[in-house]
Design a protein around this nucleic acid. Structure first.
Length: 144
DNA sequence: TTTCTGACA
DNA sequence: TGTCAGAA
């Protein structure tokens, strides 16, 4: 059977085993805004291969570089999402994310703007950080 | 049995 | 980060 990399198929315990980290740590990464696992109707988390790769990158960065979860979150908080989703000038000035720099846009309330009906897990902004090199690649594209 | 949330020696 | 409680 062929499984797409975006297909959420691993339970949290499976994912933790594959990654060599604890279930608790996985939940911590989520709480801190680094990952957005898929949720079943039963509220159970499911992780895709893509999610696994994302966590590998997070783990690697936290272990090898002098950065912690907070630092990682702040890096993600600098992504110019407004350039990717092209929201209006008004929406930008009213956006909590646009005006701050401590949380990724997917941790902000989207109730009143263009993102209101979008799933952050599916969003290009969230996915521009799927591997360790993709943030840089994304920024190169946006700035060129 | 597994997972969820929340709390904390 | 680990672990425990109480519920689903």
């Amino acid at each position: 059977m062929i499984v797409k990399s975006e297909e959420p198929i691993f339970t949290i315990s499976n994912a933790a085993n594959i990654l060599g980290i604890s279930v608790h740590t996985l939940r911590m990464y989520e709480k801190e805004g680094l990952i957005i696992p898929f949720r079943k109707k039963s509220n159970q988390r499911l992780y895709s291969k893509k999610d696994i790769e994302r966590v590998k990158c997070i783990k690697k960065t936290i272990n090898e570089d002098k950065i912690n979860i907070e630092g990682m979150r702040r890096v993600l908080a600098l992504l110019p999402c407004w350039k990717i989703i092209n929201c209006s000038e008004n929406e930008r000035t009213a956006c909590e994310y646009f005006n701050g720099y401590t949380k990724p846009c997917w941790m902000i309330n989207h109730k009143n703007n263009i993102c209101a009906d979008k799933e952050c897990r599916e969003c290009e902004v969230y996915n521009s950080f799927g591997s360790c090199s993709s943030i840089k690649d994304k920024l190169k594209t946006l700035l060129s």
